Amino acid sequence: MGITLAEEIVLLSLDDGSGETRRRQAAGWAAAGAILLELVMAERVSVAGKYLELRDTTPTGEELLDGRILSMEAWLRGRAKRRVTDWLTREQTKAVGAAVERLVERGLVAAEVHKVLGMFPQKRYPGTDGGAVERALRERLRAVVIEGAEPDERTAGLIALIHSTGLHGLAFPDRRRKEVAPRTAEMATGQWAADSVRTAIRDVQAAMVAVTAVTVAASFTA
């Protein structure tokens, strides 16, 4: 495995100049969904309807995923399954940070601290590899969405997450959303993955729509 889907989401969201995360809330939902989808593809978790179930706690060998397996095991508290929306809500504020830490460990971004107004420390994460990994990622997405290439399972899952969280502008900054949304929607509902993964994509998307709708509603009533 190369970098994880969550790390790919974060690479798309990091500003090349400042190293700061753009669309952080949406990126958080996408990264949380990406980790969950990756665990489904690794056959550690199953997602069906409104519920998820931890099926196998064997380490995958990927630090980011294995940390989430342990966290999910503790969160389940011996229960067979719990709601997908509850897990995503729990992970949304943590997923970007966890993915960024992994990118730092891989040497793909650097952790820098600067002071806002000369007083308040703020972290930012500029790229360190000249953008090679990000360019390859964007070329892969462009080949599928713009040029019509057939995706592999991971790329289809990534595009589905981009579509469901409205991150088209980060993934395709030189295109208007209406130019790419029909194709990303096709990826989100198409036959590009195994049945279990396709079902998980559908149900994770539905869960993200549910929790983001609640979050938006709460922001208007606060």
Rank of each mutant, 00 (worst) to 15 (best):
P121M: 15
Q122M: 14
Q122K: 15
Q122R: 15
Q122C: 12
K123Q: 13
K123M: 14
R124K: 14
R124F: 05
R124L: 10
R124P: 04
R124S: 15
Y125C: 13
Y125I: 03
P126I: 11
P126E: 14
G127E: 15
G127P: 09
G127H: 08
T128E: 13
T128Y: 07
T128A: 12
D129F: 08
G130A: 12
G130D: 12
G130T: 15
G130L: 12
G130N: 10
G130P: 02
G130E: 07
G131K: 08
G131N: 13
G131F: 10
A132E: 09
A132V: 15
A132Q: 15
V133K: 13
V133P: 02
V133L: 14
V133Y: 03
E134P: 01
E134Y: 15
R135W: 08
A136P: 01
A136G: 14
A136V: 14
L137E: 05
L137G: 02
R138L: 04
R138F: 09
E139F: 07
R140E: 13
R140A: 05
R140N: 14
R140C: 06
L141K: 03
L141P: 07
L141H: 03
L141Q: 04
R142Y: 12
R142W: 06
A143G: 13
A143I: 00
V144L: 11
V144R: 04
V144M: 03
V145G: 00
V145Q: 11
V145P: 02
V145L: 05
V145K: 00
V145N: 00
I146N: 06
I146C: 05
I146H: 04
I146K: 03
E147C: 06
E147Q: 14
E147F: 07
E147P: 00
E147L: 09
A149V: 05
A149F: 10
A149P: 03
E150L: 10
E150K: 09
P151A: 06
P151M: 06
P151V: 08
D152A: 12
D152V: 02
D152I: 06
R154V: 02
T155V: 15
T155W: 04
T155P: 04
T155G: 04
T155R: 06
A156N: 03
G157Y: 03
G157L: 11
G157A: 13
L158S: 00
I159W: 01
I159Y: 05
I159L: 15
A160T: 03
A160E: 00
L161I: 05
I162A: 01
H163N: 11
H163K: 11
H163F: 10
S164F: 01
S164R: 01
S164M: 00
T165E: 06
T165M: 10
T165Q: 09
T165L: 02
T165P: 07
G166R: 04
G166F: 08
G166M: 11
G166K: 00
L167S: 01
H168G: 06
G169S: 10
G169Y: 06
G169T: 05
L170T: 01
L170A: 06
A171I: 14
A171Q: 03
A171H: 08
A171F: 05
F172I: 01
F172S: 02
P173K: 11
P173S: 12
P173I: 05
D174A: 15
D174T: 12
D174W: 11
D174V: 13
D174E: 15
R175W: 11
R175Y: 15
R176S: 07
R176M: 12
K178Y: 10
V180K: 02
V180Y: 05
